[in-house]
Design a protein around this nucleic acid. Structure first.
Length: 254
DNA sequence: ATGGCCTCGGTTCGAGGA
């Protein structure tokens, strides 16, 4: 069983790459973020034709999330029921006995901004909701773009980023809270290469210079973590023409 | 050097992303 997450930064632009990647990497679950499509524009037929079911919720220009699977997708929930939000950032579903939550956590912009306060409130509501979900769903996975680099080793140049957005103590505290609740960062279950990231800035030759961050994560409940046999970041699509600035993360469950 | 690049909406620039 393979679970993956990928912030595609516009599914309209990236659909050919998503289909190519799925052809090269058949997975049981693929969570997408930043689809940036209203539901009427979602490429449902193309994804179905590739052999995948899909649940999605989107809006114009920003945000938007989707879950793709070759298996049946059941009990779809859009957004956090405990947090009224016009922004389409969460979709959850049950697939092959697992409860899958696909999340696009707010960016936050800067620690002194209103958007940062929104991010922290959003994360607090996420904690509250997941605490309920884990009671009902022992096999629970949270996949997505967290917009948080959990530790200094997840940042290309930690000294340059101290206190900034994506690495601030408040954000890292919110991530740590998820671990405290019992979730495991699948990537850190295994030995990993140093300086392996999931996002690189388009500017400043970020990818070529490996100036990146690990901000896309797969968090697993204890029952799923016990089955996890591998977790990798696939840098391949970041090397393609006109790439997303993020690249897929994949967890394998035994 | 607080910009650089990419996407979108909507027009030829601004906002947002991270």
């Amino acid at each position: 069983m393979k679970l993956a997450t990928w912030n595609v930064n516009s599914l309209k632009v990236r659909l050919p790459q998503v289909l190519q990647w799925l052809s090269d990497n058949p997975v049981d679950v693929l969570c997408l973020q930043e689809t940036k499509l209203t539901d009427d524009k979602f490429p449902l037929a193309e994804i179905n034709a590739a052999g995948y079911q899909v649940a999605f919720t989107g809006q114009k220009t920003y945000n938007g999330v989707a879950i793709l699977s070759p298996h049946a997708i059941n009990d779809v929930v859009k957004n956090n029921p405990l947090f009224a939000d016009e922004q389409q950032r969460i979709i959850a579903a049950t697939i092959a006995g697992m409860r899958i939550v696909c999340a696009y956590i707010p960016n936050g912009q800067a620690p002194d901004s209103d958007k940062f306060q929104y991010k922290l409130k959003w994360l607090a509501a996420l904690h509250e909701w997941l605490a309920q979900e884990q009671q009902q769903h022992p096999q629970l996975a949270l996949l997505g773009d967290y917009n948080i680099a959990p530790e200094d080793r997840d940042v290309h140049d930690p000294a340059a980023w101290v206190g900034q957005n994506l690495v601030s103590p408040e954000e890292r505290g919110a991530f740590a809270q998820l671990l405290k609740m019992g979730f495991t960062d699948a990537f850190r279950l295994f030995d990993q290469p140093e300086k392996l990231f999931s996002w690189w800035d388009y500017r400043r030759m970020g990818f070529r210079l490996n100036r990146g961050m690990r901000i896309d994560h797969i968090l697993l409940s204890p029952a799923l973590a016990a089955q996890c046999s591998a977790c990798i970041i696939d840098k391949t699509p970041r090397k393609w023409e006109q790439p997303s600035d993020h690249t897929p993360v994949i967890a394998t469950l035994a």
